[in-house]
């Protein structure tokens, strides 16, 4: 009998999922709110993504240099870094940062609206809070994550370039020519698709946690916590699953 709550919960999650898709494509569009949320998503995570991606580029470059130079393949550094950044590091870092930043934000925001009956207030005035609050946020994170990933890739590569330039005096053109020649369109597209899934997962999980939070102030904390932890967990799961599928085309 212990399975029952789990099954009920997963049914609930599935219905939430279904509702998002139904309203995203059938209900009157919320482009105004989506735009606002897109801006919020970008605005909230821009600095963090910049900072972490840059540092990741620097650190990764510095750490992989010794092992490459031990067999005289230092010139492979740009291609190694670019593949690592674009295939894995960029999406993963952006995903995790956004899961932390946006997940807690969305989770807490919706949960506190739920607790203070603001969502109910929208509901009883017939204002369709689900599409206004949830669909717009999920759409925004789904659309914005790929953009943020592209940005993070660029920043990480820049960080890597600055490191390489500092140590080896490699020129800008040479570095990015090497990078460009070792990246395939498959790498880029798969990373963007992955980012789209990351974005959807973050938006979906956080909204679900917030929208269905318990009443009371502890509910807000719990929702924010659930949003972040589960989003991060799912980012790794999606990363693994996507890897398997992408390998089919490679």
């Amino acid at each position: 009998m212990k399975f029952k709550p789990l099954l009920l919960r997963s049914a609930d999650i599935y219905q939430f999922f279904q509702r998002i898709f139904k309203q995203a494509f059938h209900a009157p569009s919320e482009w105004r709110e989506v735009l606002k949320q897109c801006f919020a998503v970008g605005n909230r995570s821009f600095f963090l993504v910049t900072f972490t991606a840059f540092l990741a580029g620097v650190v990764f470059t510095r750490q992989s240099r010794p092992s490459l130079s031990s067999f005289g393949a230092e010139s492979w550094l740009p291609s190694l870094v670019s593949q690592a950044v674009i295939r894995s590091l960029g999406p993963l870092i952006t995903g995790l940062i956004c899961a932390g930043k946006l997940g807690s934000n969305i989770g807490a925001e919706l949960a506190s609206m739920k607790v203070t009956e603001q969502i109910d207030a929208m509901e009883v005035s017939g204002s369709r809070p689900f599409s206004f609050l949830v669909v717009s946020r999920v759409t925004a994170t789904t659309l914005m994550l790929p953009l943020l990933v592209v940005y993070a890739d660029c920043v990480a590569l820049l960080g890597s370039f600055i490191t390489v330039n500092f140590i080896n005096n490699t020129g800008f053109k040479l570095y990015f020519n090497t990078v460009a020649s070792h990246i395939t369109y498959l790498d880029i597209f798969s990373s963007l698709i992955k980012a789209t899934f990351f974005g959807f997962a973050i938006g979906f999980i956080s909204s679900y946690a917030g929208y269905n939070s318990d009443n009371g102030t502890t509910g807000v904390g719990k929702a924010a916590n659930t949003a972040v932890v589960i989003s991060m967990l799912f980012i790794f799961i999606i990363d693994l699953v996507m890897l398997q599928f992408i390998n089919l085309f490679r």
């Binding site: 029952k4 789990l6 099954l7 009920l8 997963s10 049914a11 609930d12 999650i13 599935y14 219905q15």
Partner: peptide, 10 residues
């Protein structure tokens, strides 16, 4: 019904 749906989803 919801339990069934949940089982199906999982």
């Amino acid at each position: 019904q919801r339990v069934k749906l949940g089982a199906f989803v999982i």
